[in-house]
Design a protein around this nucleic acid. Structure first.
Lengths: 335, 335
DNA sequence: TTGAAAGCGTTACCAT
DNA sequence: ATGGTAACGCTTTCAA
């Protein structure tokens, strides 16, 4: 197999220097229009393909933005990724995606791996990281954006919302409906950290309102999904009758819980209320519609893209930007 | 800002040459064990991070495998990606993901973009591509793997299954249950091509069995999901009573259809049967459970990873590999 | 077991 | 408007 076609080859064929080819291909106006045209044509004829790797190497700019998600198989995170991806379309940046499987150790390994690609910015889902991850990131002069949370001690920029205050809205809503005895259905402690924030939010809000202690219902280790919600209700058995509402960590979990309630002949919401989180499609299509919390997953991605645009354009100012996209209660028919 | 830490710096600090550092970091046995250890430690202390871009440049191997998915927000494709990602863990390859939004033009643009990163292989979801995409790919000496389909004229390797024969299983199942008047719920023609294959499969199977003409119910443009399934049933109105079964292009669509049937007071399956595709979690958790077709989304990814391993190890032989992972009917309570 | 030299393809910088 | 030179950080190759 013959050697690959480089700018050199194009230059030789046209009778100019490689520099001129480089300029021409970038549509540099200082290159004679005719020459530019000729170069483009010859490049095409020779089957020249631009080498981004060489460019990244020479300029020390990879054109990558690294992104970590807890799971790619999650409609909310996928929407965030999509928003980011679409919003970044203009800037020519490419996303380098990795999934942590909800584990901070895995995140550390992933960050280490992603950093070897010299990303120009890194987007981390969540605000919990290992010390080593923090060290790795602060050793570099790299914009860091944490999303889907409002960390107490951010690494840099933030685009997220308060999981605790979102849950407070749910608890308040339930209390107003006369639902006092709450069960929280989520992953075991210490695996899903966003889930843990939500649980803490429920407990705090219930205490604040003087409700009885929240019953914690362990649905297994993260990621918890529909089947875990169903299993949790099934495991509860008759104990479910001592609760007024099942506050679930996410809509899939809530849907699983709702389905299992139905199977067991429980009427929702008359026998028990069920709430979710995330305003997934299933919440609004399910019959009955599930009461949930709307989070603007897609907008988080778009806000991040906007922030990155500003950062790359040098228009972001010096201070870390903290964007709270908020959340809102979306009442359904299950409460 | 100080200059970035390179192998040179590590070498200087340890008192060896950069070459020795390079070898040591790759765990080359020829380097003295003690020296190796020392180097690793110093590298760590200095906060050295390996530069994959430089490596890719020097070796002319990017370490990337490019992947296109119609949508990242789809549990099946996400599982395939995960299977691939995990299976590829060993080989050190990194995935470069792009989403086509179910459009072949978008795919072309994406392929073009991905190719500038010199991927060592490319994985395309589906077997339909623009001529330009085909040309771009065949101009390169690059392994191509098409997945989630069994294309008539593959570009290279294939890991997929027949959408048509999968649908035939559904139609046969329904016919055995005495369901003859079928409606197919899917995206409009020419957007979702996998969906179009499924529709064609339903029509062919119905004809084969001598069933009445299949009623085609347009659920909008791809990607169609839960709300589209619900909307389609809603749009049908009373016409739904002339059908024995709604054959849906995917489980989310089936779930939407099922929910809307319930809302309208239709009993499933006594008044009408509903089937889905993909064995999504919602199919098995929903009450009633949805009859669906099981496709091994995760396994497709793992098979691709295995194939890539062989390719990179030079053990794949010369012929394109065609892997049919098959599909199976998963009877539920909706038929 | 270790090192020196060269080069991967591009572009920043300075000259002309 | 165009070109020459050097350099980005690493690894292949050969030599010691």
């Amino acid at each position: 197999m013959s050697h690959r076609v480089t700018m050199r080859d194009v230059a030789r064929a046209v009778g100019v220097s490689p520099m001129t080819v480089s300029r021409a291909l970038r549509d540099d106006e200082t290159v004679n229009a005719k020459t530019r045209h000729k170069i483009r044509q010859v490049a095409n004829d020779l089957g020249y393909v631009y080498d981004t790797t060489a460019q990244a190497f020479r300029t020390q700019k990879s054109g990558f933005v690294a992104v970590t998600l807890p799971s790619i198989n999650n409609a909310n995170f996928a929407e965030t990724f999509r928003g980011l991806s679409e919003g970044l379309g203009q800037s020519g940046m490419q996303l380098l995606l990795g999934s942590t499987n909800y584990q901070v150790d895995k995140e550390e390994e992933l960050v280490r791996q992603l950093l070897t690609r010299n990303p120009e910015a890194i987007v981390l889902t969540g605000g919990h990281h290992t010390d080593e991850t923090r060290a790795l990131l602060s050793a570099r002069n790299l914009p860091v954006i944490e999303i889907w949370d409002l960390p107490a001690a951010p690494l840099g920029h933030v685009v997220g919302f308060s999981n605790a205050s979102a849950m407070a809205k749910v608890v308040t809503h339930l209390a107003e409906k006369g639902r006092y005895r709450l069960g929280f259905v989520g992953a075991s402690e210490n695996t899903d950290l966003r889930g843990a924030s939500r649980r803490a939010g429920v407990i705090a809000a219930a205490a604040e309102l003087g409700l009885p202690d929240v019953t914690i219902i362990d649905a297994g280790s993260a990621p918890v999904s529909m089947r875990h919600g169903a299993q949790a209700v099934s495991d509860l058995g008759d104990a479910v009758s001592e609760l007024d509402a099942l506050v679930c960590v996410s809509d899939p979990v809530a849907f699983g819980a709702l389905s299992e309630c139905r199977r067991r002949g429980l009427k929702v919401p008359s026998d028990i209320a069920v709430t979710g989180f995330g305003n997934f499609e299933v919440a609004s299509v399910s019959d009955p519609r599930i009461t949930t919390v709307g989070v603007t997953a897609r907008e988080i991605g778009m806000q991040v893209a906007a922030l990155l645009d500003d950062l790359f354009a040098g228009e972001a100012g010096d201070l870390p930007r903290i964007v709270d996209v908020g959340s809102r209660l979306v009442p359904g028919e299950t409460s």
